[in-house]
Simulated scan of single mutants.
Amino acid sequence: MHVISNLLRKSAALPVAVASAALFFLMILTFCDVVLRSAFNAPIEAATELTRISMAITVFAVMPVMSARGEHISVDLLDGVFQRLRLTRIRDAIVFIGCGVMLYWPAGRVVVLAERARDYGDVTEYLGIPVFYMGWFIAIMTYLTMMAMVLRGLAILFAPQLLERQS
């Protein structure tokens, strides 16, 4: 089990590195676009499509990692009630499994849209990048997020000691 845990931890570094690189590229792109637009009245023509691609990579690359680690933003309005009733673990498991199962529908829709874009030959305006690549990336990452959330929910229910060691 320790070997699997180490493998998962190391494999989580790749999507985080990809998202970090995309975010850094986005910062440089924005800076250069602002300078060129303001100083020389010559904006980067492809900045909009590169920004959209970079944002999609930044957001969707880390979704499975954040879900597996349980690092979502949450509002604890009812935490006191659930703690008094000792239902925190059950609530967390239901939320993770429910949200994971619900991700099946949007991921499937993105696959349909990506395939439609591929069939139509849709490409980005300036650079001519096929749109379906981003669609498939988003779909794959959403499916991985779905699996991570369901597995975390099941771990909360049946093997909470594994998650306690992870922290």
Rank of each mutant, 00 (worst) to 15 (best):
V101W: 08
M102W: 05
L103A: 03
L103W: 01
Y104P: 02
Y104L: 15
W105Q: 09
W105G: 02
W105L: 15
G108V: 05
G108W: 13
R109S: 13
R109D: 14
V110K: 00
V110Q: 03
V110Y: 00
V112N: 09
V112C: 04
A114D: 01
E115V: 10
A117E: 07
A117N: 09
A117M: 09
A117D: 12
Y120P: 02
Y120N: 14
Y120T: 10
G121P: 03
D122N: 08
D122L: 08
V123G: 06
T124R: 10
E125Y: 13
Y126I: 11
Y126M: 14
Y126Q: 15
L127G: 10
I129Q: 05
V131C: 05
V131E: 13
V131A: 06
V131H: 05
F132Y: 15
F132A: 06
F132V: 03
Y133D: 04
Y133I: 14
Y133E: 04
Y133L: 14
Y133K: 10
Y133M: 08
G135C: 03
F137E: 01
F137M: 09
F137W: 10
I138M: 12
I138N: 00
I140D: 03
Y143L: 12
Y143C: 07
Y143N: 05
Y143F: 15
L144C: 14
T145G: 09
M146W: 06
M146Q: 14
M147E: 02
M147D: 06
M147V: 15
A148H: 05
M149N: 08
M149D: 06
